[in-house]
Simulated assay, not measured.
Amino acid sequence: MKIIDVAVGVIKRDNQIFISKRADELHQGGLWEFPGGKVEQQETVEQATARELLEEIGIKVLEQSEFMLIEHDYGDKQVRLHIQLIDKFLNEPSGKEGQRTQWVAIENLHLLAFPAANKAIIEKLESVF
């Protein structure tokens, strides 16, 4: 089975994280997520993260650091999530593709419905911050 590499941005400002909601018709639709997307061929994780976040939520990433790596098998597809922490960026993030978005306090993230692969990200955010 082919593994899909996905660049994911955990966008942090003070004690809040910016999240968006997946469209109902998408894989894992209706769930909240950290914005990002597939890493294209000939693209680094950093380039993919910056490109996806500009396209999806309109921010220009100034600095990013590796936060964690998650491999998850959904049964119908395997993903490798490259989680990047973004705490320096330009512009106010918003849903550029019509998706719902919001800032959420780190301690409240666990109250929202996320894909299974994202649970480890929330746990690490809670323990680190």
Rank of each mutant, 00 (worst) to 15 (best):
V6D: 06
D5A: 07
E56I: 09
A116W: 06
R100Q: 13
G29L: 14
E63R: 14
A105F: 09
K38E: 12
A116D: 11
D5P: 05
M68T: 14
Q47F: 03
V39R: 01
V45Q: 01
E107M: 05
V39N: 00
K96Y: 03
Q102K: 15
Q84A: 08
T44P: 08
E97N: 08
V104Q: 01
I4E: 10
R80K: 14
Q47L: 11
A113W: 07
P93H: 07
A105I: 02
G95Y: 07
E46I: 13
G36E: 05
E66W: 14
G95V: 07
Y74F: 14
K77S: 12
V61T: 13
A23D: 08
G29M: 14
N91D: 11
G58K: 07
E43N: 10
Q99C: 09
M1L: 06
L90C: 01
F18G: 02
S94I: 08
K96G: 01
N91P: 04
F89L: 08
S127W: 03
K2H: 12
L54P: 00
L85H: 15
L81P: 00
H72K: 09
L109P: 04
K21H: 11
E66G: 11
I59V: 15
E97H: 07
K124R: 13
G98V: 10
W32S: 00
F114Q: 01
E40S: 12
E92C: 09
I59G: 00
E97D: 07
V128E: 11
A23E: 08
K124Q: 11
G9N: 02
N91A: 08
D73F: 09
I70V: 15
Q78C: 08
R80A: 08
I57P: 00
I106C: 01
A105M: 03
D73Y: 08
L90E: 12
M68D: 12
L90H: 04
V128I: 13
L81S: 10
L81E: 03
L112E: 09
L26M: 11
F89I: 09
H82G: 01
Q42I: 02
Q41I: 13
A117W: 06
I122M: 04
Q28W: 06
Q28F: 08
I11F: 15
F34W: 13
I57Y: 00
D24Q: 12
I57S: 00
D24V: 13
S65Q: 15
E123C: 08
K119R: 07
K38C: 03
W32N: 00
E56L: 13
K124I: 06
